[in-house]
Design a binder for these strands. Structure first.
Lengths: 252, 252
DNA sequence: CCGCGTCTTCCCGCATCATGGAAACCCCTC
DNA sequence: GAGGGGTTTCCATGATGCGGGAAGACGCGG
């Protein structure tokens, strides 16, 4: 994984956490065998892990279908994370920014080899919270890469550069060049590189050392974010980014 | 359960999950030794667990203070839980109920030996999401107990019945009598039993078998929920409870 | 109605893996 | 520069998780 050296031992724990992560990709509920398959584990092992996770409240079994879903402990920790990181204070800021620009404003951080949307995306009724998106094919991902702290800035460590659309950057050198441009400009644009007909601009939320802690992103259609208005959207984002930085994690 | 039969083995996993749960009670960030102390674990063991959790993204270390806080994986799973359980569809319902009653509307489920607020409580700017509250001293707790499914209905299995205020029910027989009244009335009231000057009413969200899957609660001051208006608040809650039940977990 | 495939659950002997004591280390403070 | 708080690393030991396999539980179709 990107997260470099996994501590050699601790495989039981790693596997248990992996079981939880299984619930990322697939549908809402999983059976023991689904999990075993997904993790290439013997069924009995998967079953034991699941039992332990259920006992701790991290999974719960649907009595009807005998399958499992995420449990209340997960919800609790999620909420706690939300407050620990001061995200509740950002909600109104993003909402205001969204109203002012008519675009969808969101905050994302790096999580492993993806960008993870922590809040935002509330344009229609759909929220895209908790969505993982690739780093190489999104504006937020480019921002996170462009100002990545040392150790996370190695593009060769990235898994794939999957081409999601015709415009997706699929080559590492090309990506390197793009990131240079992003650094020079101070913002990143994604023009249909992850999804046709979607354009977004993203600016970095920098920490004290000048590394990107998060990315503040505005997302809409090219009809709204026209070529000559890109700069305006960037400025709107930049106008709030200090406030965002101040509210993110002022926990001490 | 009340976490009853923990599968005999699996102590590594149990401990790792326990480390995560540490972040419930205390302040936002914990050091390795804090965790070791909290769990009565040798420091080296705690350290190894933390390392594994960090590698999986469940914890992250603050580079400045060398302490740890909940990581992005936790946020992601929390969001996933939120959607898996259809909670996003409940938000507007609760907001409407809150506006109509001027009280704070919330949804809670049982989690272990506590009631856990999943959404709601947005009266001022404060949200009480993710808050654990005792079962015996809250309206939602009484509801969850009164219609508890078999296996979770044993009051003697509850830990303590701590008296939080003068009015808190501290005796199991007294609680049994109260639950009988709750069942007969179809709703529960908490009149300053968890916190002086706070009154709340709660109605059960029943599943197909007639057991409480969740509790829908309205919370305010006694000035708002006066004695002769309790029934009105109950009716307001009951008027929405079917909708809530329909939106909760229609996942199949 | 019975046999078959697919699921979950349980059991148990073996070797692997987590364990935790101890020591090195790092950084502040006094 | 000694002292105390914390973190990190190492390593021999045996407890502990491992996973093959067998036993239930269901649902389906012949």
């Amino acid at each position: 994984m990107a997260t470099s050296a996994a501590p050699s031992g601790a495989q039981a724990v790693r596997r248990a956490l992996g079981v939880l992560q299984c619930f990322r990709h697939d549908g809402p509920e999983l059976g023991v065998t689904d999990i075993a398959r997904a993790m290439a584990l013997p069924i009995s092992t998967a079953h034991r892990l699941v039992l332990t996770l259920v006992a701790a409240g991290f999974l719960e079994r649907d009595p009807a279908t005998v399958r499992y879903r995420l449990g209340t402990s997960v919800a609790e920790l999620g909420q706690l994370h939300y407050f620990q990181h001061g995200l509740h204070r950002l909600d109104p800021v993003l909402a205001r920014l969204g109203r002012a620009t008519k675009a969808s404003a969101s905050i994302a951080v790096r999580s492993g080899d993806d960008a993870l949307v922590l809040i935002g995306g509330t344009v229609g009724a759909e929220s895209s919270d908790g969505i993982r998106t690739p780093l190489h094919s999104t504006a937020m991902g480019k921002v996170l890469l462009a100002w990545a702290p040392p150790g996370e800035d190695d593009l060769d460590a990235l898994p794939e550069l999957v081409r999601l659309t015709e415009r997706t950057i699929g080559d590492r050198d090309e990506l390197r060049a793009e990131l240079d441009k992003v650094r020079a400009a101070g913002y990143a644009v994604n023009d249909g590189e992850s999804e046709p007909g979607i354009r977004s601009v993203s600016v970095p939320v920098l920490d004290a050392d000048g590394f990107s802690y998060a990315a503040l992103t505005l997302r809409a259609t090219p009809e709204l974010i026209t070529d000559d208005r890109v700069r305006w959207f960037v400025d709107q984002a930049l106008a709030r980014v200090d406030q965002v930085a101040a509210l993110l994690l002022p926990t001490r």
